[in-house]
Design a protein around this nucleic acid. Structure first.
Lengths: 214, 214
DNA sequence: TTCGCTTCCGTACACTGTGTTCGATTATCT
DNA sequence: AGATAATCGAACACAGTGTACGGAAGCGAA
């Protein structure tokens, strides 16, 4: 498709992405027409279709940047080990969301529609499955790995969207700890232990290294 | 609007509902046009709009019947007590889904779209909040009730949709037990105990009262 | 059965939004 | 400065939506 060397191309894509996220936050994704985006971004109709097939392609393009970023952070974790009591994958996700608050508000909030949610769900489920699989295999748990990944992925996304929709209270570390307090006991029960956990996850209280609320 | 005493009305609504769920299972909700429903149901265009404002209204009408049924089942539980280790609200939901497999497959499966999911989420979150609130108040947990309801609702819906999309393996009791095995340890950790639980939920093995797979 | 009422049908229509085409114009890179 | 490539804008065909209305037919009750 179009290359990224040209300044005009960068300007066009940047304007379109910004217009889309703006409009999502104002009216919600479903209520937006292509013409709305064009007017807001001050971009010609034919130009838009030279870059994206439709509205959804633009949305996914916006999401892909975030997605690649997040995947890099997730892949940076050592799989199978270093599951602290706060939950390794979750803290990465929450920190990432906090770092890109505005985009998360648009894409993962109440107005974002289900498209992004589905893709994010797939991404996180794969990451969780990778982290859980070795432990599950060793413990002989009767619960299928897919079901576990499904449960904890949905729970994580539930807390994430709740956090986003509330306007990011409490800072990422605190939210990650809340998630860990609810998720880890179940994981311990299924696996039998939690690698590298010196403190029992049943009583999370002090040790709060939070950033101030936005 | 239209009354329900007339045989023609019942026939129209029944045909429309059946056509919709059929088409959802075949192509997915988003790919369906009103005209498609009309052709399948053999109903005139103007007749459709005499009953429903649009496609979504028809979908919600289908969902409302289920919703009322499920809510009755949920309200039949004594709030605050009788939380077995399998998880009271969850077993009700899973049993209800199993009883209405076909509709759940259409409305809550991969093809159902996000509309139903959102409404079901709201309903279940309210039910869970009702069940958890008294225990949370007594235990002084640092986790806000909204966050807990969000987490366990999302997890429940995650397992539910996974179960639905897999074609209902394992029977409702078994799935409810899986959910309980993952969810209850976290609830115990937050609340401090689980009312009326004589057996620890950490090792769910025998005691399977399942129905055979469909 | 017949009467009155309601629903249903079918067509036609206005309208909104989509995605494409193409020649003219303008910005960018080298 | 000149070749290249992106943008613009207007026009177009198309699909789907929701409404209006007159005639036909089914329904419940007497």
């Amino acid at each position: 498709m179009t290359e990224v060397g040209d300044r005009r191309v960068r300007r066009t894509r940047r304007n379109l992405a910004e217009a889309l996220t703006d409009l999502i936050l104002e009216r919600g994704y479903d209520a937006i027409t292509v013409q709305d985006i064009l007017d807001r971004a001050d971009i010609g109709r034919s130009t838009f279709y030279a870059h994206f097939r439709d509205k959804e392609a633009l949305l996914l393009s916006c999401f892909d940047d975030l997605r690649d970023d997040l995947r890099r952070d997730l892949d940076a974790m050592t799989p199978g080990v270093e599951l602290h009591d706060s939950g390794q994958p979750s803290i990465v996700v929450f920190a990432h969301a906090y770092r890109h608050r505005r985009v998360y508000r648009a894409l993962c909030g109440r107005h974002g529609g289900n498209i992004v949610y589905g893709h994010l769900h797939t991404l996180l489920a794969a990451a969780l499955r990778t982290h859980l699989a070795p432990h599950l295999a060793a413990s002989g748990s009767p619960i299928p790995a897919e079901a576990m990944a499904e449960f904890y992925t949905s729970g994580l996304l539930g807390i994430l969207t709740w956090w986003v929709n509330q306007g990011f209270p409490h800072g990422p570390a605190h939210v990650a700890q809340m998630y860990g307090a609810m998720a880890n006991p179940g994981i311990v029960a299924a696996i039998g232990h939690l690698p590298h956990s010196d403190t029992p996850p049943t009583t999370p209280s002090h040790r709060d290294t939070d950033l101030p609320t936005e």
